[in-house]
Computed example of a mutant assay.
Amino acid sequence: MTNYIVALVLGGFFGFSLNKAGLTKYNKIVNVFRFTDMAVLQFMMTALVVAMSGLFALRGLGLITFPAIPATYIVGNVIGGLIFGVGMALTGF
């Protein structure tokens, strides 16, 4: 139960950070798809690098272990990606 609470708090903080940075505004999202404003992508890539660095540092200290990664379902990933992409494009349109 504690893991869910921590994940919820961290997710809320991340969403709050996105909102305070102005990255949830319509114009910002549309300009990402037009390749004229990369602020959202820069923010997300920075978040990924920080999270990755933190996880590998915690693993190096022996505080966490990574679970085994199951096999990838290519068809499911492609269909899910298409649904997500079409939904984002239609929302921006």
Rank of each mutant, 00 (worst) to 15 (best):
M38V: 11
L55M: 08
A51V: 05
G76L: 06
L48F: 08
G80H: 03
I29Q: 03
S17W: 07
I83H: 02
S17A: 14
A57D: 01
V78D: 03
A21Q: 13
M52Q: 06
F93A: 15
S17N: 11
K20T: 10
G85C: 02
A7Y: 04
F93E: 15
V40Y: 13
V78Y: 05
A71P: 00
I83T: 03
M52G: 11
A68D: 13
V50Y: 04
A7K: 00
Y73S: 15
V30I: 09
G11F: 04
L63C: 02
V78H: 02
L10G: 04
F16N: 09
G92I: 12
L55I: 06
N31H: 07
L10P: 04
G11I: 00
V50P: 09
K20C: 04
G81S: 05
P67G: 00
M44Q: 15
L90Q: 14
F43N: 07
I29A: 10
L90D: 01
T36R: 08
A57G: 06
L55P: 01
V49T: 08
Y4M: 12
V75Y: 05
F84W: 04
R34M: 10
F84L: 13
M45K: 13
G11E: 05
I79E: 09
G92V: 12
A51G: 08
L90P: 00
I69L: 12
G80Q: 03
V78F: 05
L8C: 07
N27H: 09
F13Y: 13
L23W: 02
M44H: 08
V6H: 07
L41P: 02
M44V: 15
L58R: 03
G22Y: 04
G22S: 03
I29F: 09
F43P: 01
G11Y: 01
F56L: 13
V50H: 02
Y4D: 15
S17E: 06
G54F: 12
V50C: 09
A39E: 14
G87D: 05
G54D: 02
V75I: 08
L23A: 10
A57I: 10
A21N: 11
V49F: 05
F14Y: 10
T24M: 15
Q42R: 14
A21M: 06
G85L: 04
L23R: 01
L61W: 10
Q42V: 14
P70E: 07
M88P: 01
N77Q: 13
L23N: 05
I5E: 04
N27Y: 05
L41R: 11
K25E: 13
N19W: 14
F14E: 04
S17I: 05
G15A: 15
N31K: 07
V40P: 03
N3L: 07
G54C: 02
M38L: 10
A39H: 08
K25D: 11
I5V: 13
N77L: 08
F13G: 12
A47D: 06
T65D: 10
A71Y: 09
N3F: 14
G81M: 05
V75L: 10
M38I: 12
R59S: 09
R34A: 06
V6A: 11
L48D: 08
M52R: 10
A68N: 08
V78P: 00
A57K: 04
F56N: 07
V32Y: 07
F13V: 15
G76D: 06
Y73C: 14
F14Q: 04
F84A: 14
I79R: 05
K28M: 09
